[in-house]
Write a protein that binds this DNA or RNA. Structure first.
Lengths: 128, 128
DNA sequence: ATAGCTGCAAAATGTTTGCGCGAAA
DNA sequence: TTTCGCGCAAACATTTTGCAGCTAT
């Protein structure tokens, strides 16, 4: 990867954000410093930075589309990165964390969006 | 809300999915039973079902766009539903859960995508 | 010199919406 | 009969990509 003024500016600008901006928001900000920059360049560089592990996308299932679930009660998901299987996981596993957050930060959790990825038991067998 | 054959079929079809399909995947499946149905109807009804709490969207930050984060190490987020503040949360809080999943299901967690929503300490003061 | 990166614009993808017709209450 | 939901197509929003020229190495 070669140096580019645009990429550096995008990275620095993102670092200075308090929130987690969208590509568009970042573009608007970056444009103040470098008016001729294009939105395509912002997207291209964000993708490169994610690939190189310098930044991350904030979302759970890396999917361009929204996915739906007929289970209407709150629950979380276990995704196997090898076979792709998605298993439901009861929220009760996280209640101890909720309690800790209440005690420590006085933060009252009302909603969980949790996706844990890793290797399921079947796949860890065939791994070796 | 009035009854509709389309909505019922969409809901039933979603329930029969093992995975968490996209609107498009659902559309393809539903079309087998009801060839004249339109993709717009599928989207419309999924939105209605989410509103009514019959189904859920599987994702963390409800945003049409991807959001980026310059912190490249893994961490999770606490979002206050009242003031909108997003705080970073260290992953160490979840290690006990990881351990439990290993013991119970032999699932090895390698990646966490966690967003907890609720009320932050500042907002719970002004709540009363 | 030569990859790689840029700006631009077009295309691709995912989702929503206005309209006029048909179906549920 | 009066709404509400439908199918269709167009609009919209987000993201990717082909191209021709520029830039870091």
């Amino acid at each position: 990867m070669r140096y580019s003024r645009q990429r550096e500016l995008i990275f620095e600008t993102l670092k200075n954000f308090e929130t987690h901006p969208t590509a568009e928001q970042l573009y608007i900000q970056v444009k103040q410093e470098m008016p001729q920059i294009s939105l395509g360049t912002v997207y291209r560089n964000l993708n490169i930075l994610v690939e190189k592990g310098k930044i991350r996308k904030v979302d759970s299932l890396e999917s361009s589309s929204v996915r739906y679930d007929a289970r209407s009660d709150e629950h979380s998901h276990l995704v196997c990165t090898k076979c792709g299987t998605v298993k439901d996981l009861d929220l009760s596993y996280f209640y101890s964390v909720d309690k800790l957050l209440k005690e420590k930060f006085d933060f009252t959790v009302t909603e969980h969006n949790i996706v844990l990825k890793g290797l399921c038991s079947d796949c860890s067998l065939t791994e070796k």
